[in-house]
Computed example of a mutant assay.
Amino acid sequence: MATFTRISIPLAAAVLLGGTAAGTAGAGTTVSAPESVQSEQSKSGATADTVKVKKGKYGKILVDGKGRTLYLFKKDKKNKSNCHGGCASAWPPMTVDKKAQAGKGVKKSELSTTDRGNGKKQVTYHGHPLYRFAQDEKPGQTEGEGLNQFGAKWYVVDTKGKAVVHKPKHGGSPKPKDSHGGY
């Protein structure tokens, strides 16, 4: 009974405050990326659409305009993503409304977009579709480096558009993580 009460009071408040909007929210609810990733994807300002360079333990790597690490997926083909559904929830693609902006240290000629097949444009660099990792909760984190998920490995991207597959340049030696998630 207590569970019913906790659910019904907020629902009743939503109906009273939101009118019919609450009636449409429950039927199509899906699991999605964390709010920090969603807000970056939904903004059309240059900050969210910018690819920049940041120096860290893996050397100079690509990050988005908010400083979040960008990854490539070894299963992708040139300018074609092979990460959809659950994969795209765990590894949200960097998408833009129009085109990506090149920040300092990023070769504008290597920056482009590819159609994801759902009307969204995914940012590519040197032909690699770019992703964030949902478990990187703040700028500078590289928790996705070396993970084996959804049929291939994931790597941070260097300024030449290549996968960073070696040990960090500064500090300890992270152990590649092997996860069989997704299948």
Results as ranks from 00 to 15, higher is better:
residue 143 E to G: 08
residue 41 Q to N: 02
residue 69 T to A: 10
residue 38 Q to D: 00
residue 109 S to F: 02
residue 166 H to A: 11
residue 83 C to I: 09
residue 92 P to C: 08
residue 153 K to Y: 03
residue 162 K to M: 00
residue 172 G to D: 15
residue 40 E to P: 00
residue 156 V to Q: 02
residue 138 K to D: 09
residue 54 K to N: 02
residue 126 H to E: 15
residue 63 V to K: 04
residue 124 T to A: 08
residue 116 R to M: 08
residue 138 K to V: 12
residue 18 G to D: 02
residue 72 L to E: 07
residue 48 A to L: 01
residue 33 A to P: 02
residue 35 E to G: 00
residue 60 K to N: 15
residue 147 L to Q: 05
residue 7 I to N: 04
residue 100 A to S: 09
residue 104 K to W: 01
residue 180 H to F: 06
residue 5 T to N: 09
residue 170 H to K: 14
residue 97 D to V: 03
residue 73 F to K: 10
residue 75 K to W: 06
residue 56 G to R: 02
residue 169 K to V: 14
residue 25 A to M: 15
residue 138 K to L: 02
residue 27 A to P: 00
residue 15 V to Q: 08
residue 82 N to Y: 13
residue 88 A to P: 02
residue 29 T to Q: 13
residue 45 G to M: 00
residue 48 A to H: 01
residue 124 T to H: 13
residue 5 T to K: 10
residue 20 T to L: 07
residue 26 G to A: 14
residue 148 N to M: 02
residue 53 V to L: 03
residue 74 K to Q: 14
residue 148 N to G: 01
residue 102 A to D: 03
residue 75 K to T: 08
residue 88 A to W: 03
residue 95 T to F: 05
residue 97 D to P: 00
residue 1 M to K: 06
residue 86 G to M: 10
residue 173 S to W: 03
residue 36 S to V: 11
residue 46 A to C: 00
residue 128 H to V: 11
residue 102 A to P: 07
residue 105 G to Y: 03
residue 143 E to H: 02
residue 148 N to A: 06
residue 79 N to V: 03
residue 164 V to I: 10
residue 183 Y to V: 04
residue 71 Y to P: 10
residue 70 L to E: 07
residue 25 A to K: 09
residue 172 G to L: 12
residue 172 G to N: 15
residue 104 K to F: 02
residue 9 I to Y: 08
residue 78 K to D: 15
residue 113 T to E: 04
residue 80 K to A: 13
residue 85 G to R: 13
residue 1 M to D: 12
residue 49 D to S: 13
residue 142 T to H: 09
residue 144 G to W: 04
residue 100 A to G: 14
residue 102 A to I: 05
residue 94 M to G: 04
residue 76 D to M: 08
residue 42 S to N: 05
residue 181 G to W: 06
residue 120 K to Q: 15
residue 99 K to G: 07
residue 149 Q to E: 11
residue 177 K to W: 01
residue 93 P to A: 15
residue 3 T to W: 06
residue 100 A to L: 05
residue 135 Q to T: 14
residue 61 I to E: 01
residue 130 L to R: 09
residue 51 V to W: 00
residue 166 H to V: 11
residue 69 T to D: 06
residue 180 H to Q: 11
residue 82 N to L: 13
residue 107 K to C: 00
residue 169 K to N: 07
residue 113 T to G: 04
residue 67 G to I: 08
residue 88 A to Q: 06
residue 32 S to D: 15
residue 78 K to G: 03
residue 122 Q to A: 08
residue 124 T to N: 14
residue 41 Q to W: 00
residue 171 G to D: 09
residue 44 S to V: 03
residue 42 S to Y: 00
residue 162 K to T: 02
residue 11 L to C: 02
residue 79 N to T: 04
residue 67 G to P: 13
residue 182 G to D: 05
residue 97 D to W: 05
residue 168 P to S: 12
residue 148 N to T: 11
residue 162 K to N: 15
residue 32 S to N: 12
residue 56 G to Y: 07
residue 174 P to I: 07
residue 148 N to K: 10
residue 158 D to I: 05
residue 23 G to L: 15
residue 61 I to A: 05
residue 127 G to T: 13
residue 22 A to S: 14
residue 89 S to C: 03
residue 72 L to W: 00
residue 177 K to I: 10
residue 132 R to E: 04
residue 74 K to A: 15
residue 158 D to G: 06
residue 41 Q to V: 01
residue 1 M to I: 08
residue 114 T to P: 01
residue 72 L to Q: 12
residue 157 V to G: 06
residue 30 T to N: 11
residue 135 Q to F: 12
residue 31 V to Q: 12
residue 97 D to I: 02
residue 165 V to G: 10
